[in-house]
Computed example of a mutant assay.
Amino acid sequence: MTGPVRVLLVDDHAVVRDGLRALLATRPDIEVVGVAADGVEAVHVARDCRPQAVLMDLAMPRMDGIEATRRIVAATDPPAVIVLTMSDDDASLLAAVRAGARGYLLKEADGADVVAAIHAVTAGQAVFGPGVAAAVLALLQAPPVRQPPPFPQLSGREREVLDRVAAGLANASIGAVLGLSPKTVANTVSLVLTKLGVPDRAAAAAQARAAGLGRPSP
Rank of each mutant, 00 (worst) to 15 (best):
R71P: 00
G19F: 01
V198H: 08
I118Q: 04
L137M: 12
T76N: 07
K183T: 14
I30E: 02
N187S: 14
D113S: 15
P28D: 13
D113M: 15
V192Q: 03
P61K: 06
D77Y: 10
M56Q: 08
N171V: 01
S217T: 15
L55E: 00
F128V: 01
P182Q: 12
D64H: 03
P61R: 07
R62V: 13
G100F: 09
A120T: 07
T76M: 01
V115P: 03
D88M: 08
A176K: 13
P218M: 09
G3H: 02
A91R: 14
D29Y: 01
Q141N: 14
R209I: 10
V127H: 09
G103C: 09
A101N: 11
K107L: 06
I30D: 03
L20P: 01
A138N: 11
P130S: 10
R71W: 05
Q52R: 13
L193M: 11
A25Q: 10
V43H: 12
T69K: 05
R21C: 01
L191M: 06
L58R: 05
I174M: 07
P79M: 04
A117I: 08
L55C: 08
V83G: 06
V121R: 04
A99H: 07
R146V: 09
L154S: 06
A123W: 01
V40N: 02
M56E: 10
V16E: 03
D89L: 06
V161H: 00
R159M: 09
L84H: 12
L191H: 07
P148G: 06
A59D: 12
L154P: 11
P150F: 14
S217A: 15
A59V: 14
L213G: 10
G39S: 03
E41W: 06
V33W: 06
V40H: 05
R164Y: 04
D88H: 09
D12Y: 00
G168M: 10
M60Q: 02
H44A: 15
Y104I: 02
P28I: 07
Q147S: 13
A135W: 00
A53F: 07
G111C: 08
D77A: 15
R201L: 14
P130Y: 02
L8D: 03
R21Y: 01
L213C: 07
P79I: 05
V114A: 04
M86R: 06
A205K: 09
A206R: 14
A172P: 02
G129N: 06
E41T: 13
A142I: 00
R159H: 11
A126L: 00
R6I: 00
A101D: 09
V177M: 11
A117P: 09
V136M: 15
R50M: 00
V145P: 05
L162D: 05
H13D: 00
V7C: 03
E158Q: 15
A99V: 10
T69V: 03
V73N: 06
P149Y: 10
P51F: 08
